[in-house]
């Protein structure tokens, strides 16, 4: 029991020490500020996506600016046109680091639409 308590204490203290966290290195695609402030987007992109998805699918209100497609258009890697293809891809890199499950791309394409269309037209 004592051992457990001391272990917990150590953990708490070490957490408190780790003030400046080094954020993951991401391939940010075109990068820069797109639709909202960067810091704001880091904290709120999921809310935009979640509410946008209900509006778009269930009510047919398509908000092009805040759509997932628009996110990908800007943030997909300039090398492989994807936000999910590699460990440091825009979505994957951060979600791996935060240990948050990324469920969008079970169904959604992670590829830039313009690139995907170009690919299809070539076929």
């Amino acid at each position: 029991m004592k051992f457990l308590v001391s272990l917990l204490m150590t953990l708490c203290i070490s957490l408190a020490w780790a003030g400046e966290a080094a954020s993951p290195k991401l391939d940010i695609g075109k990068g820069g500020q797109c639709v909202e402030d960067t810091q704001w987007m880091r904290k709120n992109h999921m809310h935009l996506l979640k509410h946008g998805r209900d509006d778009a699918l269930r009510r047919g209100i398509r908000d092009e600016k805040h759509s997932l497609k628009n996110c990908i258009e800007c943030h997909a890697s300039t090398k492989d046109n994807s936000v999910i293809a590699r460990e440091d891809s825009f979505c994957v890199g951060c979600h791996k680091y935060e240990a948050v499950k990324l469920d969008c791309f079970e169904c959604h394409s992670g590829t830039r639409k313009s690139a995907w269309l170009a690919q299809r037209n070539k076929k």
């Binding site: 909202e36 704001w40 904290k43 709120n44 809310h47 509410h51 209100i61 398509r62 600016k65 805040h66």
Partner: peptide
């Protein structure tokens, strides 16, 4: 963040009908 997010969202531009 959620509160401010909701407000900003409602004034977002470029939505279809």
């Amino acid at each position: 963040a959620i509160a401010s997010g909701m407000m900003l969202y409602s004034v977002a531009q470029g939505k279809s009908e």
